[in-house]
Amino acid sequence: MNIYHKTTQKLRRKLQRSESLKGYLLLSPTILVMAGIMLIPFIGMIILSLWTQIGYAKFDTTLTLNNFIVVFTNEMYRVLFSRSLVVSAMTTFLTVLLAYPMAYFVAFHVQRRKLLWIILMTLPFWTSYLLRVFAWKVILGYNGVINSGLLWLGIINEPITLLLYNPSAVIITLTHAWAAFAILPIYVSLEKIDRSLLEAATDLGDSPLARFFRITLPLSLPGVVAATVLIFIPTVGDYVTPSLVGGSDGYMIANAIQFQFGRGSNWPLGAALSLSSMAVVTVITIVYFLVSKTLTQNIR
């Protein structure tokens, strides 16, 4: 009894003294959940990717790197990887380019009811992602809004078939779908900018354009970086948009992964593909972070 009492007291003292232990204790429910739903499946994926599928429902459990060799030597996967990265990079670039002026407008030119404006900008998010993709199918389709509009105006005689079922349709749809993820972080970083810096620049004779490039843009770069990462990572692995509006030319890496777990019935190869795509995205993101970090440091 006495020993028990002593140890609990010791533990309690330790707990009170150590900040990090306290932190971990507070975090423990989250850590447990994360371990349960992220780490364990992730380890399972790694193991699965080292197996070999035999027949319909069986695996050869000898560990081998063959699946990864297939992923990195097969021309099809190379093309799909680069297509996914290009589509995603284009989407990210266009989204940030379109979102920046909107965020800028709200941050600097809207004086009253800013919250209302922000809510209005996230309005597309009030409907489901799938519905937004379908909406683009309707807009870009053969009988779609664009085609019937152009036909009615007499600009074209026959509907344009190039609008749908290709990578550009995927880029357009994704750009719209992820807009709010760019607007919000950019808005926050623009809003934080100290207005007296702008006044000082004006007093010292900067034109509005020079003022923007010397003060506003560099100070808002953290928001731009956050937006880029927020959009780039999920769009590389987007599955539903390419499968609905991409056609066979807009097929992306996620579709190939889905195929391996479905009709292709080669789960180990699917696992290897997912892990490889995770690794590629991680490397790109880290490089991007480092580059943008040095860039912003230089500016300051």
Partner: peptide, 19 residues
């Protein structure tokens, strides 16, 4: 057979993707 069906499915998918 299972092997033939799986091969057909994989070939079909690769051709659809453009390979």
């Amino acid at each position: 057979s299972d092997e033939v069906e799986t091969r057909i499915n994989r070939d079909f998918e690769a051709i659809k993707t453009g390979f």
